[in-house]
Structures are given as C-alpha cells and as structure tokens.
Nucleic acid binder design. Structure first.
Lengths: 202, 202, 202, 202
DNA sequence: TATGAATGAGTTTTCATTCAT
DNA sequence: CATGAATGAAAACTCATTCAT
C-alpha cells in the first residue's frame, strides 16, 4: 500500500496499470492474465503492480470500476449534449457513445463478458458490473420516459422494464457480433438501433 | 485414448465426467475448474478424467458441445410438439423449453457466459458456442416466419434479423437476471416473453 | 508371472516383447520408453507386458541379456567358422560379425549406450552389460593369443590387457560414429580394423 | 528469464545450479534427475531453478556445455604449459589433465555417458557432446602432429584418424573402468597411457 | 519508489502398476 | 491368457506473493 507521497503521480501509475490490465484482459482473457502480463505491458516490474494494488483481485476490480466510470460518463455527457434535440436524438447519441469504434467495442465486450462471469464469484467485481448495468439502465430510463411523454415511444412501456430490455438488446447483440467475429461493425450499430426503436415502438 | 471395450459404459463414464465438469464450471467458473474438481465431483481419480479425455481442453470442449446438443434438442422437441397449435403457442413452447427452472437456467448461463468468453480464444470451444447460437436462431427463424405468414407478427420483420434480436433478448435478459442474483425466475420468464412479443409486434 | 501352460508360445511372446522393447529403446531412448510403447509395437495390451515380465525393470534387464546372447553367439559362430583360416581371418570374421549393418549397428550402440548407463545404477542390467563386455573380451583374448603364437601380432602383448584395448577401440569408435550421425558405415569398419591391427602390431 | 541486476551473483547462482545438476546426474542418472533433486542439492527452491533456466532441458544442456568448457580448458592449459617439453611430455600432460582423480573421472564419465545418449535425441545436448569430442580431438591432433614431426610417433599416422582413435581409447577404456566399478584408478591411467603410446608407435 | 530474487502452493500431465472380467 | 478400466505417485511447470535492498 503506497504511502501517497506524490498523489498525482501515484494516480497516474494506477491508471497506467489499469489500462495495461484492461488491454491484457481484452487480448488474453480475464483468467489467463498474469501480473507479469500487466507489468510488461505497463513497462514496470511485476512487484510494482502489487505495490499499487494490494493483490491481483483488487487490481482487476479496479479495472472494472474504472471501465464502468469511463464508459458511463462518456454516455452521460453525450446524452446531456443532445438533451435539447429531443428523445430520439438523445437515444441516438447514447447508442453512438456506446459504440464508438469496432476495436474499442470488441475490446470492451471481451473484457465485460469476462467481468460479468467473474462478478458471479467475486463480490468486488460483481459490484462494478452491476453498477455499470444499473447506471446504463438509469440513463436509458430517462430517455424512455421523455420519449413516452413526447409521444414518440409506445404509451404502454414501463420505463423500468423497458430500460432492462434495451440493455438486453445492446448486450445480446454486441455479444453475438463479438462471437461471429467477422460481422461489420456498422451492421451491429444499425441492427442495434433498429431493434431498440422497434421495441420502443418508435 | 481408451480402446472401447464396452461402449455403453464408456459413454456413461464420459457423460458422468462431462456432467461433473459442467457442475464444476457452474460453481467455480470455467477458468478456476481443475481436473481435481471434476474428478472429485465424479467420484473418480484425477487420472481417469484424462483416460477418457485427452486433456483438459478436450474435456471442456466436449462439455459445451454436449450442452449445446442437450439444450437444443430439448427446444426442438418442444417446438415440434407444439407445431400444430400455431406460431404463438410454438414460441411459448420454445421459450419454456429454454427456461425450465431457476437452478438450471442459472447454471446454464453461468456456464454459457464462460464458454462464450473462452470461445473467443479457443476455436474448439468457439465452434460449440456458435453452433448453439446458430441452432437456436434457426429455430427462432422458423417460428417467426410462420408467425409472419399467419399474420400474428409484424409484416416488416426480416426473419434472419428478427431471430438475432430474439436471441439477443433471451441472452441479454438472462444475463441481467443472473447478475442480479435475487430476481425471481418467473419475472425473467414473463419479461422475456413480453419483450419478445412486443418486439415481434404480436 | 505366467504359469507356463504352453511353454513355447510363452517364450515366443517374451521374445516378441523383448524385440519390441529393443526397437523402442533404439528409437526413443532407454529412459523415454514406456510400457505403452512396447505394447503398441508388439501389438498387445500394456497389461500383457507385465503379465510376462514382473515389472518394467525386469523386461529391460531381459532385453539386455538377450541382446548380449544374440550378439555374442553370432560373434562366436563367426569365429568358429573362421578358426581354420588363421588369426587374422578370425579377427576379421569377429569384427565383421559385430558390424553387420549400419542400421543394426546404430540401433545396437544406441541401446548399448543406454544400458551401460543404466547398468551403473541397476545391478540386474549392469550384470548383462558386464557379461557382454567380458564375453567379447574372452573371444578377443583367444584370437590375440593365437595371433601372438602365430607371430602375426606383437610379442609384447599381454592378451588380457590387449583384449581390453581392442574392446575400447570398438566401443569408442562406434560411439563416435554414432554421435557424428552422418559418417559412412564403411569408414567406421575400415577405421576400426586399421586401428585394431595397428594396435596389435599386425 | 531474469533481467540481471547483479550479473556476478546471477552467474554464481547459475553455476551453483549447474554443479548441483551435474552431481545429481552423476548420482542418479540423466533421466532420473528431477528439478527437486537439483534444487535440494543447491539448497534452493524448485522454482528458483526455473527462474534461472527456462526449463529442465535448458538446464541440462547448459550443464553439458559447461562441462565441456571446464574439462577442455583444463586440458588446453595443461598442454600449453607442457608445450616446451616435447610431444611425449605434452601427451602425458594431456592425459593427466583428463584423469585428475578417481572420483572426478567416475562422475565425469557417468555424466558424459548419459549426455552422449541424450544427445542422440536432443540437438542442444548433442551439440555439446560433439563439441567436446571435437575439441579434444583437435588437441590430440596437434600433439600427434608434433610427435610425428619429432619422430617419436609412427610416420604413417594420419593425425585426423589417429586423434579419433586416441579419443576412442580414452572413452572406451574409461567406460570399461567405470562399468567394472572396482578397478584401481591407476590401472586405468597406466593402461590408457600404454594403449595410446602403443597405438602411436612410440 | 521500485525492483530483482526467491518461494510455496497448486495444476496439468505422464506412467507403472493393479484388478475385475 | 488377455485386456480395458482405474488409480497413486511423481514430475514439470506456472504464478501470485513476499522480501531485501
């Protein structure tokens, strides 16, 4: 546990290590990642990883926590910026924020898939994956409510239910795209948008 | 690689080992499963596992392959039996066949989540997860086509696209239910049915 | 331990297994040979090997014992047949009998090298390698004595010493030939003959 | 694969491990040596052995390589020092350098015998045993040439052939001495010297 | 702060050997 | 006689973690 002499540099190093770990998980899979992988990728010694994170589990939990924050705040910002343009534009902005690039999306779902699985056994990690799901659902709920109010979505939707369904579509379609391996990213984006809009009755 | 003297007993033992492995994965996770786990659960020695399966990877690949077969053939049978009762009944039969019990469903998605992830790196396993997805999609496509023809589903659906979406709903909702941990199983079933029907425009 | 119901067939099977073991050692090396190797090569089950030989060590000891007998009796016969033609012809006959073919010689020294090493730790095997060395030395001694008596070899030779040296030449040159891997077999035979004759002062 | 912080200490540890391995091979035989043996003998943990050597094969290859270097450089030095005293003295110096003690010689040929055998299947090890043989042959060749030039050895010797024969005598006699187990070391030395001189026609 | 050195606990895998049929 | 099934013991190797510097 580092005594924080220079807090900023410490935070930088932690970020560097978490990024290295994220990349390592995306490439080799959660279970196969070793501290050596992370250290090598970050250009530091294996021991340093455990200097900044108590143990491997803590590092990995921090990775998911950070991933949750990064992705969700990007989505939030996008929605805020599109708030004035109406529910449909806001929904598009949200979906765009979650699918910014093929490489990024592939890496994210590789990592996320592993974390969801790991979260079933590790409470610390489970907390972050749930936080991500719930955070996203909250954003979706908001847009859905507006859309219902604005009359662009079906009247009979229950926002809490519908947001769960929207989330399921995003996860489910992304996972299939990931497993297929060769499907164009644009097809995923189009399909996701259409499915969500169809479900919402837009 | 045993030369099989009594084929039936050999098949029984293989099944016993695959079941033990399935249970072990559901409980401890794909990556954490050891041959010892499997052996202990099956009540045999560690070495016997490798007598029936060349190595750990082969065993695990066989587990996913068998799981694919078991689940899919159950779904197929259910659909065949409901074929006469119309598309809606057939869809219900299909969904019921995929959600026969809380315990079973939880175990299946725990295992399946892990296998999807593992399949990204191991071709042998990837083959089975894709086979499962494609097999299910084929069944869904069939029902959707009938539903469109019978006028109970939206006209503008493209069966190949719609089956992908239905699959996404089933996977996505199941995963969320799994992660939440405490949600009643009936709620998942109801939500799944409603979401699918809403999407299909029934 | 087989109760010898049909002694001849039992002996045949033992021979078959020893031959298979010999070939396996030549190919894979003494240490790497498994009972499965031997069984597969002999076309029988692994368990049968241990039905005819108490354990692996016994089998291997028997292999060396048999090899000793086969090679030495061949050399003896050759020498007996050449007995009338004088010491030089007898020496040639002896050397020819020990170097009947490249393949055979390579296999024999591969196996013999391993057995010499193994004999350092296993008394049963050591007995056979010593027996081979001593048996050969006896044959050599005999010829040397005749050669000295006939005046074709150096007078100052002490047969017991000289036979040891001749044996060293045969072993040492064969081992070098084996290690080099690509040297023509005829070169070994020529060199061996010349070295022996030079040493004996012929 | 340690990045070396203190190169000297690392080299010391590597040497310590190679010595331990050498002793283990001499005692238990190449094939029977385990990493645990080596570790125990070196007074370190099993894992440390693999910290310094990628795997068991690398360690063993390094042992033979080092043995080759140690023995050959001793022989070279001895010959250099005796260079002024004439070919016969140089030959004696060479033979003395190769037979410095019963214990050492026994260990060396135990190890060497195993390595020769192992070198037939492992190229890395074969390289070292060949290097040893060739290096020794080169030294022998040199002395033989001088001896011929000085008129103390037979005129008709071809140095390249003769060095091979000398090497065969050294190996062959040493192996027999080793197998016999109880023969006085001096007898080996005397016999070796006499056989070599007799062959060279001194 | 940072790291190389060192280790212990665990995992897969191999194989001689036993045993019931 | 012969074999497939089953096992226990041991081996190489991996890796998170600790520690001295």
């Amino acid at each position: 546990m580092p005594r924080i002499a220079r807090p900023e540099e410490a935070a930088q190093m932690r970020t560097r290590l978490m990024r290295a770990a994220y990349a390592a998980i995306a490439e080799r899979g959660f279970a196969a990642v070793t501290l050596q992988d992370v250290a090598t990728r970050a250009g530091v010694s294996k021991a340093l990883v455990l200097y900044y994170f108590t143990d491997k589990e803590q590092l990995l939990a921090a990775v998911m926590e950070r991933t949750d924050q990064v992705i969700r705040s990007r989505a939030e910002r996008a929605m805020r910026e599109a708030a004035a343009s109406g529910p449909l534009a806001q929904l598009d902005a949200y979906l765009d924020a979650l699918t910014i690039g093929a490489r990024e999306h592939r890496d994210f779902y590789r990592v996320f898939l592993d974390f969801m699985s790991a979260g079933l056994r590790s409470p610390a990690i489970g907390k972050s994956t749930r936080s991500f799901h719930e955070g996203c659902a909250a954003l979706e709920r908001e847009t859905i409510q507006r859309g219902i109010a604005a009359g662009v979505f079906r009247r009979d939707l229950i926002p809490a239910e519908a947001s769960t369904v929207v989330r399921a579509l995003i996860d489910g379609l992304s996972i299939q795209w990931l497993l297929r391996g060769d499907e164009p990213f644009d097809q995923l984006r189009r399909r996701m948008r259409e499915a969500v809009l169809a479900y919402l009755g837009a």
